[in-house]
Design a protein around this nucleic acid. Structure first.
Length: 853
RNA sequence: GCGGGCGUGGCGGAAUUGGUAGACGCGCUGGUUUUAGGUACCAGUAUCGUAAGAUGUGGGGGUUCGAGUCCCUUCGCCCGCACCA
C-alpha cells in the first residue's frame, strides 16, 4: 500500500518556496546583536551579471553553493548565503544603443526575471540582503571607499598610454587585453595617451604574492596563475653611460652574471630615447612606426622576426669603460617591463642570439658547462643551463649564482647599479569612458586642482536623462551633469566624467553582503564576525582579474585599518562548465555553418535528425554551452518539465564538480526518475516498521550518513550522490523493521540539501512524533553512532603471487596468525597450493593475505 | 617556448598510507508486470573464452610479496601565460 505514487514537482516547488519565504527561513543571524557560540559559515557563489536569463552554468554554480549552505545550516552553523547582481557594465549600454532602452531599466528588468528564475531553483538564500551594484546605496559607499583610498595615497591620476578599445570606445586594463584584443569586443586594441585614474595595486605586489602561499584551500592552478601574473623577477638595474657625453639609459637584467657576454644594448621602440632620436632620423621614425604596427597575438609573435635599427650611439660597458657597445632599437624589447631597455647577451639568451645572427653581431660565451671554453659561441641555440663563468675576468670559475651576487656587489660598490626586484604586475587603470558604471567622485577645478567630492555630497548619482545615439561617453556630453561648483573655492568646476571599471564593484561586494549599514560602507565589527568567506564558488575565468582585485582591495582596506582580514576568500572552488553536443549542418563553400538547438533535434543512438523535416544533422563535439553554437538548454524549460530537485540533482551527479558536466536528456530524465523512486520509498507504508532491528542496514545507514556528510563538506557532490543511491538500494532491499523506518527518516534529511522540495514534502508526511522541526530546512543532520561505523566482520582477499584467488570473511581485527591459518585452510587455496610450502606469507590486517610461492 | 592538468568499460566516473580495479549512475541485453506506453520490478553487462582460466587502468621499462596509485621513459589531449630581459 502506498499513499501517492507520484511526486508532483511543480506543485511542491512553489509550495515549499513560499513556505521558506514566509518562515523567513534563510535570514542571516545578526551576530553583532546576538552573539552566538555556533561556528559561522559564509558561503558565497560569484554573483551574476544580469544579462537577461540564467543559464545552466548558473544552475550548477548555485546548486553547489546551496547544498553546502543547507548542509551547514543542518550541522549547526550560523550561515550567511547571499545573492546580488554585478549590474554595471557594457552590455546594458549596448542594449541602450541597439534598442533605445535605458541601461538602468534594461538592467532592472533583467534582474527581476533572473531573480524569479533563481527563486525557482529553491535556493537557501537570504534575499533580504540582495543588492545590485548599480544601486546608489551600493555605489555611494564605493565612492566613499575610493576617496579613502585616494587619501591613503592608493589612488592617483596619470597621463599615460592606455589600451583603447575602438569598438567599445573605452580604456581597458592590461588584464582585459587578450592577444592584443579587447576582452569583450575582440577589437584590436590601440595605444592612446589619456589622463587616467589608477589604483596602486603594485604597492601590494609582494604581499599579494606572499599571501598566495597561505591560500592552501585554493586550487593550485589559480595560485600559479596569480603568481605568474604578479611576476616577480630579481636582478640588477644599472645605467649605461653614453659615449660622447650624450644621455645614457637604465637597463634591468636577471642575468648580471653574463655581463661580459654583452655585445649590444637594446631599447624599446617606445623608449623615450628612441622617440627623441627619431625626431632627427626619419629612418628610425619609420622603423618605430613599423614596430607599432606589428601585432602581438600568439601566432604573430611565434613567427615575428627580430628586427633592429642601429642608432649609431654607443655606450660604455659598465665593467670596462674602453669597451663600447652599439645601441639598437629593437622590436622585441617591451617598454612596459623593467626599464624598457636591455643589454644583449646572445650566447645565453635565445632572442638576443636570433638578433645577433641576423645582424651579425659578436656572440661571446661566458657560461661553460664542461670543457668548451672558447670565447666565440657557435650554433643557433643559446645556452641557458647551469655552468661556470668563463671569459669573464674576475668572475671566472664562479657559479652563475655566485657571479650574479658578485656583479651586483660590484655595481653597488662602484655606484653604477643596484640589485632590485621588478614586477610584471602593473597598476590597475580603473577609468572607463562609459555611462553605466560608478561615477568617479572627483571634481576638477582650475584653481584648486582635482579634489574629491565631499563625503556628505555622496553618492554622486548617475543622471537618468542620457543620450546613446552617438558613440562615446554620454556623461561627457550631458548638458548639465558635469558642471558643478568647486567644493573648495566655490568657483566653476567640472565633475569627473569617467566611471569605475566594474571590477571595482566586485572587489568588495562580499563585505557589503556581510554588513550594509545606511551611513557607511560596512560595520567593521560585523565584518570581523563573518569574514573571510568560508567557501567561494565560481568559474575559473576569474582566476586572475576578479580574484586578484578582490584580494588587493581587501588588503588595501586592511591597510587603512578599516577591516582586519587580508584574504577575503579562505577556500576557493572553481567549478567546471556545463557542456553539450553541437548540432550543425555545413552550408557549402563560403557559407557559415548552420547550428540547431537541442530542441530542434531528434537524437538517436547513431545520429541526429531535424525534427521538422527528418533530414540528418552532424553531431559535433561536446563543448561549453554557448548561444553562438546553439547548444544551450534553457533552465526554465527544464524546471517546468522536471522540477527544481531533478535539475539540482543532475547538476550534482556523475561529474566531479571541478570538471565539465556534459548535459544530456538521459541524465536529467535519470534524475527525475530517481526523484520519483525516492518518493515511492518515502511513501511506502511499510516504513512504519515492525519494531525489529536490522543490524546490517543500521551499519549501512550510519556509514552513509558519515560518508555523505564528509563528501558534501569536501564538495565531492558526485560521490555524495553515489552514496545516496547506494543507501536507497539498501533501504529498498531491506525488510520492514524499525531500522528501515529510521533509515527512511534519515534519508529525507540526507537528500534535503540536494532535493529540498522533495525532502520537505516527505518530511511533512512523516508522523508528528518523528518531526523535530516544522520544516526540514531547519532540521538537524542525522547523528552518527560511531559504533556502527565499523563492521565486525571483514572480507579478506587471498592472493597467490599477487593474483587474487579467493576471498573469505573473518572477524575484524583478528590476529595475523589466525588470519593466515584461515586463509591457508581455504579449500580452494589448499587445492591450488597442492602441498607446496609457501616461501612467505604477507598478511595485511583486515584486508588481504598474499601467499608467495 | 614556459607553467599546469588529464588519459580507467559503450558513456559520466569510483577506488585511505601501494593491498579484492570498475562503486554509483547512464546506456544496452533478456525477462516480468500494467489500461497503451516513454513507468516499475527482476537478472545480466570490462575484454577473450562454453568453462576452467587468461588478459586488463594511453604505450614501453623499473621498484615491490603486491602498482590505476611510486620511479624512469614515451605518446596523446586539454587549460593558462607568453619576445617579461
Amino acid at each position: 500500500m502506498t499513499r501517492d505514487t507520484r511526486f508532483s514537482a511543480l506543485a511542491a516547488d512553489s509550495r515549499w518556496q513560499k513556505a521558506w519565504e514566509s518562515a523567513n527561513c534563510f535570514a542571516t543571524p545578526d551576530l553583532a546583536a546576538e552573539p552566538s557560540d555556533r561556528p559561522k559559515a559564509y558561503i558565497l557563489e560569484m554573483f551574476p551579471y544580469p544579462s537577461g536569463r540564467i543559464h545552466m552554468g548558473h544552475v550548477r554554480n548555485y546548486a553547489m553553493g546551496d547544498v553546502l549552505a543547507r548542509f551547514k545550516r543542518m550541522t549547526g552553523h550560523d550561515v550567511l548565503h547571499p545573492m546580488g547582481w554585478d549590474a554595471f557594465g557594457m552590455p546594458a549600454e549596448n542594449a541602450a544603443m541597439e534598442k533605445g532602452v535605458h541601461p538602468g531599466a534594461w538592467t532592472r528588468e533583467n534582474i527581476a526575471s533572473m531573480r524569479a528564475q533563481l527563486k525557482r531553483l529553491g535556493l537557501a538564500i537570504d534575499w533580504n540582503r540582495e543588492f545590485a551594484t548599480c544601486d546608489p546605496d551600493y555605489y555611494g559607499p564605493e565612492q566613499s571607499l575610493f576617496i579613502d583610498l585616494y587619501k591613503a595615497g592608493l589612488v592617483y591620476r596619470k597621463e599615460s598610454y592606455v589600451n583603447w578599445d575602438p569598438v567599445d570606445m573605452t580604456v581597458l586594463a592590461n588584464e582585459q587585453v587578450i592577444d592584443g584584443r579587447g576582452w569583450r569586443s575582440g577589437a584590436l586594441v590601440e595605444k592612446k595617451k589619456l589622463s587616467q585614474w589608477f589604483l596602486k595595486i603594485t604597492d601590494f605586489a609582494a604581499d599579494l604574492l606572499d599571501g598566495l602561499k597561505g591560500l592552501d584551500q585554493w586550487p593550485e592552478k589559480v595560485r600559479l596563475m596569480q603568481e605568474n601574473w604578479i611576476g616577480r623577477s630579481t636582478g640588477l638595474e644599472f645605467s649605461f653611460k653614453s659615449v660622447g657625453g650624450k644621455p645614457g639609459f637604465d637597463v634591468f637584467t636577471t642575468r648580471p652574471d653574463t655581463l661580459f657576454g654583452a655585445s649590444f644594448a637594446a631599447i624599446s621602440p617606445d623608449h623615450p630615447l628612441a622617440e627623441k632620436l627619431a625626431k632627427d632620423s626619419p629612418d628610425l621614425a619609420a622603423f618605430i612606426a613599423e614596430c607599432r604596427r606589428q601585432g602581438t597575438s600568439a601566432e604573430q609573435l611565434e613567427t615575428a622576426d627580430k628586427n633592429g635599427f642601429n642608432t649609431g650611439l654607443t655606450v660604455e660597458h659598465p665593467l670596462d669603460p674602453n669597451w663600447h657597445l652599439p645601441v639598437w632599437v629593437v622590436n622585441y624589447v617591451l617598454m612596459d617591463y623593467g626599464t624598457g631597455a636591455v643589454f644583449g647577451c646572445p650566447a645565453h639568451d635565445q632572442r638576443d642570439l636570433d638578433f645577433a645572427r641576423k645582424y651579425d653581431l659578436p656572440v661571446h660565451r661566458v657560461i661553460a658547462d664542461g670543457d668548451e671554453h672558447h670565447q666565440v659561441y657557435h650554433g643557433d641555440e643559446a645556452y641557458t643551463g647551469p655552468g661556470r663563468l668563463v671569459n669573464s675576468h674576475f668572475l671566472d670559475g664562479m657559479t652563475i649564482d655566485e657571479a650574479k651576487a658578485a656583479v651586483i656587489a660590484r655595481a653597488e660598490h662602484d655606484g653604477w647599479g643596484k640589485g632590485t626586484t621588478v614586477w610584471r604586475l602593473r597598476d590597475w587603470g580603473v577609468s572607463r569612458q562609459r555611462y553605466w558604471g560608478t561615477p568617479i567622485p572627483f571634481i576638477h577645478c582650475d584653481s584648486c586642482g582635482t579634489i574629491p567630492v565631499p563625503k556628505e555630497q555622496l553618492p554622486v548619482v548617475l543622471p537618468e536623462d542620457v543620450d546613446f545615439s552617438v558613440p562615446g561617453n554620454p556623461l561627457d556630453r550631458h548638458p548639465t551633469w558635469k558642471h558643478v561648483d568647486c567644493p573648495s573655492c566655490g568657483g566653476k568646476a567640472l565633475r569627473e566624467t569617467d566611471t569605475l571599471d566594474t571590477f571595482v564593484d566586485s572587489s568588495w561586494y562580499f563585505l557589503r553582503f556581510a554588513s550594509a549599514p545606511a551611513d557607511r560602507p560596512f560595520d567593521p565589527d560585523v565584518i570581523a564576525r563573518w569574514l573571510p568567506v568560508d567557501q567561494y564558488i565560481g568559474g575559473i575565468e576569474h582566476a586572475i582579474l576578479h580574484l586578484l582585485y578582490a584580494r588587493f582591495w581587501t588588503r588595501a582596506l586592511q591597510h587603512l585599518g578599516m577591516i582586519h582580514v587580508k584574504e577575503p576568500f579562505r577556500s576557493l572552488f572553481t567549478q567546471g562548465m556545463v557542456t553539450h553536443e553541437t548540432y550543425s549542418r555545413a552550408q557549402g563553400e563560403g557559407q557559415p555553418t548552420l547550428y540547431f538547438t537541442p530542441t530542434e533535434i531528434n537524437r538517436t543512438a547513431d545520429g541526429a535528425t531535424l525534427l521538422s523535416d527528418g533530414s540528418s544533422i552532424d553531431v559535433g563535439r561536446v563543448i561549453k554551452m554557448s548561444k553562438s553554437k546553439k547548444n544551450v538548454v534553457d533552465p526554465d524549460a527544464i524546471l517546468d518539465q522536471y522540477g527544481a530537485d531533478a535539475a539540482r540533482w543532475f547538476m550534482l551527479s556523475d561529474s566531479p564538480p571541478e570538471r565539465d558536466l556534459p548535459w544530456s536528456e538521459a541524465g536529467i530524465e535519470g534524475a527525475w526518475r530517481f526523484a520519483q523512486r525516492l518518493w515511492r520509498v518515502f511513501s511506502d507504508t511499510e516504513n512504519v516498521g515492525d519494531g525489529s532491528e536490522d543490524k546490517a542496514l543500521a551499519r549501512t545507514l550510519h556509514q552513509s550518513v558519515a560518508a555523505i556528510g564528509a563528501e558534501i563538506e569536501a564538495l565531492g557532490f558526485n560521490k555524495a550522490v553515489a552514496k545516496v543511491y547506494a543507501l536507497v538500494n539498501a533501504v529498498e532491499k531491506a525488510k520492514p523493521s524499525a531500522t528501515r523506518a529510521e533509515a527512511c527518516r534519515a534519508l529525507i534529511l540526507l537528500v534535503a540539501p540536494m532535493m529540498p522540495h522533495l525532502a520537505e514534502e516527505a518530511w511533512a508526511e512523516l508522523p508528528e512524533s518523528q518531526r523535530t522541526t516544522a520544516l526540514v530546512a531547519d532540521a538537524q543532520w542525522p547523528e552518527v553512532d560511531p559504533a556502527l561505523l565499523v563492521d565486525d566482520e571483514v572480507t579478506i582477499a587471498i592472493q597467490i603471487g599477487g593474483k587474487l584467488r579467493e576471498t573469505f570473511t573473518f572477524a575484524k581485527g583478528a590476529d595475523k596468525a589466525d588470519v593466515e591459518a584461515a586463509a591457508l585452510a581455504q579449500p580452494k587455496i589448499v587445492e591450488m597450493l597442492a602441498g607446496a610450502q609457501p616461501k612467505k606469507v604477507i598478511v595485511v590486517p583486515d584486508r588481504l593475505v598474499n601467499i608467495v610461492v
